[in-house]
């Protein structure tokens, strides 16, 4: 068993275990804890998949930002300490059956494809050689050093596609989606602040 495999099994087990614990836990704060465990471990999977920037963004934006917000929301809306909202056993059973069916469907469709042949067919002439790139002491772009190529892609340039020998075309980048996302974030900022602004609180006897 190589190091990569060992790490994959550890991270995959923690990711799946955390996700299943989120489903099975009834206490909403513990759900948040298991969600953090699951998403943090999936950041580890991203690092294994040579996507350092995505893994780090996952840790910073998802785990460090979004989930803190979620926990904050849990605390603000919990009626009592450690509040529980029970799911009825019948619902849970039905959900379990549906989950097993869905997982079987997805799993069988994943396993029925011969990925090696698909990859070999699409990758022809695109194999990255190790001697090609200069090693600057940290990992090469194919090994997770993707910060600069990703930045260029967001600026609308694709040196990773265009600077290949024999390539005569120019690829498009992601400048427009990037701008749209930034405007979208601004709209969300204002909208969320508007929705959550302090309003008159309803007293329990008025309900």
């Amino acid at each position: 068993m190589t190091g990569h495999q060992l790490l994959f099994w550890v991270f995959a087990a923690v990711t799946c275990g955390g996700a299943i614990a989120v489903v099975l836990t009834q206490n909403v704060v513990r759900m948040a804890f298991w969600l953090i465990v699951s998403l943090g471990a999936s950041a580890g999977l991203f690092f294994l998949l040579n996507a350092d920037f995505v893994g780090t963004a996952q840790l910073l934006v998802y785990v460090g930002g979004t989930l803190v917000l979620l926990v904050f929301g849990v605390m603000l809306t919990a009626s009592g300490p450690f509040s529980k909202m029970q799911t009825r056993p019948g619902e849970l059973f039905l959900a379990g059956v549906v989950a097993i069916l869905l997982l079987g469907l997805l799993g069988s469709s994943v396993c029925s494809v011969e990925w090696d042949r698909v990859i070999a067919a699409t990758n022809s002439g695109h194999q990255i050689t190790n001697q090609q790139s200069l090693n600057h002491g940290f990992n090469r772009p194919e090994e997770g050093n993707t910060g600069h190529p990703l930045g260029m892609a967001f600026l609308g340039m694709r040196p990773d596609r265009d600077l290949v020998a024999g390539n005569k075309t120019l690829s498009t980048g992601y400048l427009l989606p990037f701008e749209i996302a930034s405007v979208h974030l601004l709209v969300v900022l204002i909208g969320a602040a508007y929705l959550a602004r302090a309003k008159r609180r309803v007293h329990p006897n008025e309900l």
């Binding site: 350092d52 920037f53 840790l59 785990v63 460090g64 989930l67 926990v71 605390m75 990992n139 910060g147």
Partner: peptide, 27 residues
């Protein structure tokens, strides 16, 4: 680990510290 995104990585991991503190306070 000489990550290309080293600074980003450090900021990301240090931002996780708050979760432990919040859980400690809540639990």
């Amino acid at each position: 680990q000489n990550l290309e995104v080293g600074l980003f990585f450090m900021l990301a991991l240090m931002s996780l510290e708050v979760l432990g503190v919040v859980f400690a306070g809540y639990s």
